[in-house]
Design a protein around this nucleic acid. Structure first.
Lengths: 217, 217
DNA sequence: CATCCGACTGAACGCCTGTTTAATCTATTG
DNA sequence: CAATAGATTAAACAGGCGTTCAGTCGGATG
């Protein structure tokens, strides 16, 4: 993918690819006319092939999902650290796809939610395996922990997107690169060394939930 | 605030308050007509008082910022755990404001970014103080760590919002309550106990950044 | 009282949007 | 070759939107 920008693709595919890029760069508010122009066709043809703007987006969802499913993102959450880093450095190829997914997530769209749910499950499996192997600490609620960690990852992507100036076109290659540079060190510090030097806060909370004070209404 | 729903407020204030609620519940795509109806006035009056929809939003931004500034949210990041929890349980009063802020953040709006930046600074100060007191572990890059942790909090709010079904009206009281219930335990576990049982991943990354392999292009 | 000014409204305007329609072009097929 | 079906387009359509406008009301002011 990404190798053929020109007209050697069927128009339907060209429109779909242009739509993925436009949706990813500008969000789903982007105009059918803009997408059509990017694909070098008329607005009417877009509707002719996809029925409606919603149909076009559904086609994009399916297309992106198929690619991601095929290329399996599990390597991102791979237990082998070096493999993860190596993979991240080549992630630029997936940038337009990632942009589309993040935008879908930002809006609460079905594709973003589906992929996020899969990530939650992957993280849970990974943690369970690591716990069995003795690399991961046990949790009082492994399912909640998995969702929590996955939400941290997806959420930080949404934040990184929010930090970009509003209407500007977003370069997601650089975006993802900066994201890893920004978050990798503190994340690993936190995962390996924790944050607090004692368990005071945790114990206070455990007491709080097992015996909630009356003052809370 | 929130005590006077009726007509004992000036129309301008009533429109502004209705706008804050509508923007928070439905997002900024909400119609001027909808806001006007909620405030019990005509659409024209909204423009008459605020010049434009953008002007109305600016007024909402300023108003929310003023309230938050006055009520100082520092207690949320207070070093005293019990005070935080007690505060959170009464947070419902701030629900409409939080909704507006989260929506602003989701869209990359100026208010959300400004408040987030303040949160970053607060977290950094809090961590530095805790580090001095011996409660917080030192970091190789305290500034990055502060931003990272703040982004986790804001980002998880954005994720929780994304997980709601799309067009539905969002009840932010329940939303915030479920958010704390969902994330508090795994967060404290992670902060107090860490995630990995050893430092393999961190050391591998430190080696990687100090001596990047050629294969990464 | 006359006047003036801001609050306020209902209706209209103009723009942008997704979509439809009618017509043209292209290529396959019998 | 004739014919049919699909690809494609320019233009128009219809709806929703932010905004404008002309006019009414009510209270303050001189």
């Amino acid at each position: 993918m990404g190798s053929t920008d020109s007209t050697d693709l069927t128009a339907r595919a060209r429109i779909r690819d242009a739509a993925v890029v436009c949706f990813g760069e500008h969000g789903f508010k982007v105009t059918v006319r803009t997408i059509a122009e990017k694909a070098g066709v008329s607005p009417g043809l877009v509707i002719h092939h996809f029925g409606s703007k919603a149909g076009l987006r559904k086609a994009c969802d399916d297309h992106v999902f198929a690619i991601i499913h095929e290329a399996k993102m599990e390597s991102v959450t791979s237990p082998d650290p070096m493999r993860s880093f190596r993979h991240l450095s080549h992630l630029e190829e997936f940038a337009p796809l990632m942009a589309y997914i993040i935008r879908s997530l930002q809006e609460g769209g079905p594709l973003g939610l589906a992929l996020h749910e899969r990530m939650v499950r992957d993280v849970e499996e990974y943690l369970a395996a690591g716990e069995g192997a003795g690399n991961i600490r046990p949790s009082r609620d492994p399912r909640k922990r998995a969702r929590f960690l996955a939400n941290m990852i997806s959420g930080s992507l949404l934040m990184a997107l929010a930090e970009r100036p509003g209407e500007e076109r977003v370069d997601f290659s650089r975006f993802l690169q900066e994201w890893t540079e920004e978050y990798m060190l503190p994340a690993l510090e936190l995962y390996c060394e924790g944050l607090f030097t004692d368990r005071k806060m945790l114990d206070a909370y455990l007491m709080y939930v097992s015996d909630p004070p009356e003052e809370s209404r």
